[in-house]
Structures are given as C-alpha cells and as structure tokens.
C-alpha cells in the first residue's frame, strides 16, 4: 500500500535502518511510532497474549538474536516483510533466493538449539 500510494517499500528493517541514520526520516519515524503504538494498544485491549512466549527467552539470547537480525537484514537489504512480502510480491529474484535461505536457516537453528538444550 505504501508503494502504491507513495512509492515506498514497506520493509521494516529498511525503514528502521534509514530512520536511525539517513535521509527523509520523518515518515519513517512516524511509521515506526505507529508500529509501537499498535503494540501498546494491543497490550491494553488483548492482554499479555500479544507477546506470548517472550518471557521464556533468556535476556542474553534475546540480545544476541537482535544483533544477528539487525546485521543480517541490513546486509541482505530485507527482512520478513521486505523480502518475504514486498520482494516476493514484486517477483524479485533476490527475494526468491533470500526467503528460503533465511527461513531454512531459522528452522535449522531452532532444531539444533532444541537438540543442544
């Protein structure tokens, strides 16, 4: 919708990266504020089920995962929404490669983690 109305791709990682340091930050910061606000509203209306499972993840694992997701999506220029939705919907060859790679890696990582833990 962002692309059709305003000519923008709504990949979250890309929006967040440029919002941190880049040109034309106002709309990107507003978009991020909208996402955070949606979480606040959901917490009040729906309750803690919104983030079900979050409390079971140790802090160190959260931090390492966050860093890896940040570096990875920045390098690959896209995350689940960027490559997975926008990229695939536009029939981007890069996304057709990226999505199976990150989804497969995530599945293998989780499987290994469960074996080791």
């Amino acid at each position: 919708m962002l692309w059709l109305v305003h000519g923008r791709i709504a990949g979250i990682a890309g929006i967040a990266r440029v919002a941190l340091r880049g040109p034309d930050r106002d709309w990107r910061l507003a978009f991020i504020a909208g996402l955070v606000a949606a979480g606040m509203v959901a917490r009040i209306t729906v309750g803690p089920a919104v983030v079900a499972g979050l409390d079971t993840i140790p802090l160190l694992r959260l931090a390492i995962a966050g860093l890896l997701v940040g570096i990875g999506t920045s390098m690959a220029n896209g995350c689940t929404s960027g490559h997975g939705i926008c990229g695939l919907a536009r029939l981007s060859r890069r996304s057709l490669v990226a999505v199976p790679v990150f989804m497969g890696t995530a599945m293998i990582t989780l499987a290994l983690f469960k074996v080791l833990a």
Partner: peptide
C-alpha cells in the same frame, strides 16, 4: 545471519517494534 537470529528468538524487525510497545 538473519535466519540464525530469527530461529533463536522467533522475532523479526516488524514484530520487534510492536512487541516493544506491548512490553
């Protein structure tokens, strides 16, 4: 790298920002 992180916590950038507001 993204897949490694996603598999460790089950959180990608969009949900991370929503969850930041929720908790």
């Amino acid at each position: 790298l993204f897949g490694l992180g996603w598999g460790l916590a089950g959180i990608c950038p969009g949900p991370a920002l929503v969850d930041l507001g929720a908790q």
